[in-house]
Design a protein around this nucleic acid. Structure first.
Lengths: 146, 146
DNA sequence: CCAATGTCAGCATAACTGACATCA
DNA sequence: CTGATGTCAGTTGTGCTGACATTG
């Protein structure tokens, strides 16, 4: 019973599943020409709006600090995938807005997401995938700390 | 349709779910006295056998390089949680074996895993959790690269 | 005065690649 | 000779905390 690796825990399983998607995404986008793609880039790109999003909002959505999101956005700017524009509603804020090239990359990424999910359906069945989605889309609330 | 954050993808959902478990685990083990615990430690501990495991095998199970696993094992040795013993079947190999203190930590971790899963059942229901498990325990195969 | 935002700097963690010695 | 294993060294990626200026 103490044999930890035999009793596979849910956290472990979720990690493996996440990596399945992450590796698939990065591998395909790289081979499609996005050479400098890393996980940090894709995780920001996964939550950006087509018409632009504040850095602090990107941080909240992707679950990292403002400073970490800032760094990734600066790199995406360097790669020509997003532009920083002033936020008309707040002069202390700026919006990260995808460029034409960035929008093209987002389209690619969304296509890859679909492909990966389709491939998963082929491998474990549509029922399992939809049940997986159902469970994950529930509100789990914050991780229990106490 | 290009609004990426509205169409939440499975990879994103899996990442959030993994972090739910990971943060819960680390928070509880830390407050139970394991001060130096990090994700790297727990991910190795999650796959070690009670009677010892080769470093290269730990690497394969946890999905990192031999060198990365080596580093974490060295740190676990420093913390007195595992010992390195010669492998009787192969003189170029060594087994990382949990100490008494290490076995105690593994027991704690397994208890926390159970608690977290129980808490999740309370939040999203037993049906959802068991369906989640079912889907994740299928063999997904390697991430599609081509 | 306070809260949110963006930014700069420094630091810690974690995993990587490369290289090499040992052993089956 | 080849392949697996362990190890050392160097490097990169990633996110963190702290601090500060600006804006609402």
């Amino acid at each position: 019973m103490l044999d930890a690796h035999r009793t596979v825990n849910l956290g472990q399983l979720l990690h493996q599943a996440f990596r399945w998607f992450d590796e698939g995404l990065v591998a395909r986008l790289r081979s499609a020409g996005w050479a400098e793609l890393t996980r940090a880039h894709s995780s920001i790109f996964a939550v950006i709006d087509i018409d632009g999003t504040r850095i602090s909002e990107l941080a909240r959505r992707s679950g990292v600090t403002r400073q970490a999101a800032h760094q990734v956005v600066q790199d995406l700017v360097r790669q020509g995938l997003v532009e920083l524009q002033p936020d008309p509603t707040n002069r202390s804020a700026r919006r990260a807005v995808p460029t034409a090239s960035g929008r093209h990359s987002i389209e690619m990424a969304l296509t890859v997401f679909d492909d990966l999910e389709t491939e998963l359906v082929r491998r474990i069945g549509a029922d399992n995938v939809s049940r997986l989605r159902d469970a994950l889309e529930h509100d789990w609330g914050p991780p229990p700390v106490g």
